[in-house]
Amino acid sequence: MSDDFDAQLGRLFNQAPAFPDNEAFAARVTARLDRDWTMRRIMIGVGGLAAGMVVAWQFVAGRFNVEVATVSSDAQSMIDSGVGRMMISLDRLSTLPAGGETLWLAAALGVAALAFGVTRAVESF
């Protein structure tokens, strides 16, 4: 008897009451699902954009650092080689018969020309 009543009660619980606004209820749920889905897509989009910007920034900053390092390295090697060549030239000049005197004479002429130029410039003001 108890089993019969249990089964009967189970059937009664499974008989859903009729709701005249069932369609409206379903529409509300699906509208909320759509809204949540749209929000989620926007959040994913914003998150993706932010992540993309971070990656792009990291990439650009990384490339910039590499470029600066390369330029710096190139410039340093150019300066080093230039200084090296100049030292070699100076060494060669000093090995000429009148090398030392010629060098000093050229320097003196340069200083004199510079002084003349500065004097003329001061006079013209």
């Binding site: 619980f13 499974n14 859903a16 009451p17 009729a18 709701f19 069932n22 369609e23 209820f25 379903a26 749920v29 699906t30 699902l33 759509d34 889905w37």
Partner: peptide
């Protein structure tokens, strides 16, 4: 597929609300 889920809501909404 939200439309498919909407059909489930339509079918079982009364049972859930009733419970």
């Amino acid at each position: 597929d939200r439309a498919a889920y909407g059909e489930l809501v339509r079918r079982h909404g009364p049972a859930v609300r009733g419970l």
